[in-house]
Design a protein around this nucleic acid. Sequence first.
DNA 1: ACTACGGTTGAATCCTGAA
DNA 2: GTTCAGGATTCAACCGTAG
Lengths: 226, 226
Amino acid sequence: MKVTDKLTITNEDCFDMLRRTESNSIDLVLTDPPYGMDYQSNNRKDKHKKIEGDSSLEWLPDWINEIKRVSKDDSHLYIWCSWHKVDIFKQEIEKHFKIKNLMVWAKKGGGMGDLKGGYGGCHELCFFINNGKNLNGRRDTDVIDKAYRTGNLYHPTQKPVNLMAYLIEKSSVEGDIVMDCFSGSGSTALACHETNRYFIGSELDKEFYDISVRRIKNDINQQRLF
Amino acid sequence: MKVTDKLTITNEDCFDMLRRTESNSIDLVLTDPPYGMDYQSNNRKDKHKKIEGDSSLEWLPDWINEIKRVSKDDSHLYIWCSWHKVDIFKQEIEKHFKIKNLMVWAKKGGGMGDLKGGYGGCHELCFFINNGKNLNGRRDTDVIDKAYRTGNLYHPTQKPVNLMAYLIEKSSVEGDIVMDCFSGSGSTALACHETNRYFIGSELDKEFYDISVRRIKNDINQQRLF
DNA sequence: ACTACGGTTGAATCCTGAA
DNA sequence: GTTCAGGATTCAACCGTAG
């Protein structure tokens, strides 16, 4: 569905979207896939359901393969990941790409989990692949510790729009085409609207898909960006 | 060699040291092994030589196996690592241990490497394994971004003494036995002196071994800890 | 501008009971 | 025994408001 002139989100499996996508056509891949940890937020239980398709990483090899095909020769890619499965992601990605950085997002707020025998988990990882373009702006570090809020209002694992917008501006210019295969509640799409990029995305879960469409329309009407 | 009453460092391969070490005898393993990336700082090439035995990780499986044997049933382990080989380290460690956290040390100061096409590398990773004791003190996060300075005075990948001391105090009590198989310029040993723990370590490279012994003696005499 | 305080939250882990 | 799924729990950091 064309949500706006430049933003297209479809309610389908990402492989269906990828199949229709031309080879060598995407400027920037920015995506937050299921981490493969069978995640269910048990925090205030009624709020969020379990993540669909998060119980294995079987999709990963074919997915990387397709991503390789559709991304331009000088594209940039950002693939989010948690440390629990970082080895699998790294090895699959390296079959097709040369990883440039493993970035760390040092999140604000305490983490949950073991309160006595472990440290509170406060970071997420992101693979950065550079197929041949410079980064925009000043030289930043691979640790992102700016004041980005989590704010999981719509999706249990939602990323902040301004975090996504930051990466988009580092790695693309206005009018570029950005792809997110796991669009979720639409944070990447919103960041593209904010930064004037084209967006192509898919989200399998009907509920999140609907939320993302509504969220974008609302935010655009109200000129309010989360 | 017994450098002090409580600090022992030997100039040998760590497997020789491990062979002499009793099973189930070490309270805390805290070590910064060769990262397996053939490290040579491009910054002032003459300053640091290549790290011996750093070109492959062949030693890793046997080493983990020995570490498993010598560490106590309720021990803690910290194993430093860079993201370049994080997949290999993780998979080898997980053959014998359950990893509790992947910690991130967000270093201060700019990183080196590609100035245009990549982010500056400003972090190092550290696997934390908890075999069954609580951590001391308040609940901290898995991102360490306190003002620990690198200051590679003696060794190209030297860790700050106060960073090591922090981890030692989180995971042991006075009189505990701490092991570092890759003692380098002796930062872990110094941190043990500072926190009144026993230390057993080995360093293969004669030059670094000598430096570490001199450094410890100096620092103890001058009551000055780096 | 700065501090004080209370409310809210987190890609979690542990524990319990059932299969 | 062992695995598995669901519910309870927890604290430090962050946000917003008030002083």
